[in-house]
Design a binder for these strands. Structure first.
Lengths: 236, 236
DNA sequence: CGGCCGTTTGATGGAACTCAATCTACGTGG
DNA sequence: CCACGTAGATTGAGTTCCATCAAACGGCCG
């Protein structure tokens, strides 16, 4: 079992971050090095807890997680999804405290995030952070102005795009392990309404979804339907 | 006209950033220095345009602005508000591109943001960025899970808190120049419904709003009503 | 087999939207 | 000084989308 150091050997973080800036050999090696101490987590386990100091940044190597906020009366909102290759809790301020909880949705593997230093890795972290902010902007627009149908299609677009960036989605179907209830908590809807809306979308031949996978049929039509623009945070 | 270098001489950015970390005299001086070349902008003027490269960071010195996103069919979502003392377009990645437009809502004054360097100013910028992210999380929760009444009260709380951090709000009423239509675009509602909801809140003796000012009556009751917790991104 | 989780279906209610129309305050120009 | 135009706030009636409550259904695992 050779420990390869090539550009994208099964490590979604390397695949993803290498697209954001040119990483040096030692940058890539430090990512692989960190991945040699993986931490396996079951589903529904806290990675960060709101108000609790953050020990150090982490990287999602496998599985899905989410940032979420719970209201006093039990209402729940998933703020963002964390997919393989994403950074978690990488803060620049001293003595940082988690502003939201982060919880695994499926069984997952994480590792600690190497210190960015000053070079290509720092740039890649910066781009990753800017993209995370962009995804929050999109989420706000989804919740504020899109209908239930549009919210679902738009978020599937985004998931596909992000999985592809980590080397985990091609042109066909892609992994989508969220239950309808979790999808509802993400999209500001109820599980019942998500169910009915999904049926509508299936009837209309817009999407396939089931068995932990999804696919967007006729992506070009759907792209217009939800006015989806590619994510772009820097030139080149 | 002496050019004071004290901690908070009328410069909301100094007031705000000095609360985030201990700024050196030269940090403070560089902020004042930047403010000596103010740029006056009318209302409804673009500060950043989506997809356009960002020249350099700016600081809001006076007035209100917002990040916003327009959909192809004319729907509009205000993503976040930018108040005096806030940073605009401070990016860490190279050749950054604006991910959203930023537009003045009132006549405003901005100046360029001094380079953060490595010391207290960099820490203050980091805290400011973390807070901005926290406000996005809150906005997502508002839009996803709060009722119209709750959204309005919650956002007024946040505005008051942020104005206070810049030294622009005491315990009583505070500036609130947004029209009902802009409030609607912020909260994912229609102007008509905002109007009716405001009347309800006024009848219930929860808020006062009008003439460009607002106040929260019985803040403790309202704090429970919307489960509002103070913003906190680091220890101390 | 029985329990659980997730999905599905039905019936009903309500929060928020849509489409007007009216009202008010305010500034501007004749 | 007043007629006018405009932006913002307000009101009304009718509609739609989504929530709520409740129950049934299917697969999976112990």
């Amino acid at each position: 079992m050779a420990t390869s150091t090539s550009a994208s050997p099964d490590n979604p973080a390397v695949t993803r971050l290498a697209r954001f800036s040119s990483l040096s050999t030692s940058d890539i090696e430090s990512l692989h090095e960190a991945a040699r101490e993986p931490q396996r987590l079951a589903a529904h386990v806290d990675i960060l807890r709101e108000e609790v100091p953050i020990a150090g940044g982490s990287i999602m190597l496998a599985g899905w997680a989410c940032r979420l906020r719970l209201l006093a009366d039990g209402r729940r909102q998933i703020l963002s999804l964390l997919l393989p290759g994403d950074l978690i809790g990488v803060c620049r301020q001293k003595r940082a405290v988690a502003t939201t909880s982060v919880v695994t949705l499926t069984s997952s593997i994480i590792c600690s995030a190497p210190a960015p230093g000053e070079g290509g890795l720092a740039e890649a972290y910066a781009v990753s952070g800017a993209l995370e902010e962009l995804y929050l902007f999109r989420q706000i627009t989804r919740l504020g102005r899109l209908s239930a149908e549009e919210r679902i299609v738009d978020s599937l677009f985004e998931i596909q795009e992000r999985l592809a960036a980590a080397g985990l989605a091609g042109t066909g179907s892609f992994p989508m392990p969220l239950t309808q209830e979790l999808l509802a908590d993400t999209l500001g809807l109820t599980a019942v309404h998500v169910n009915r809306t999904l049926q509508q979308l299936r009837r209309d031949g817009m999407i396939e979804l089931g068995g932990g996978r999804a696919s967007l049929l006729d992506p070009e039509r759907l792209r217009l339907f939800v006015d989806h623009r590619p994510a772009r945070v820097s030139l080149g």
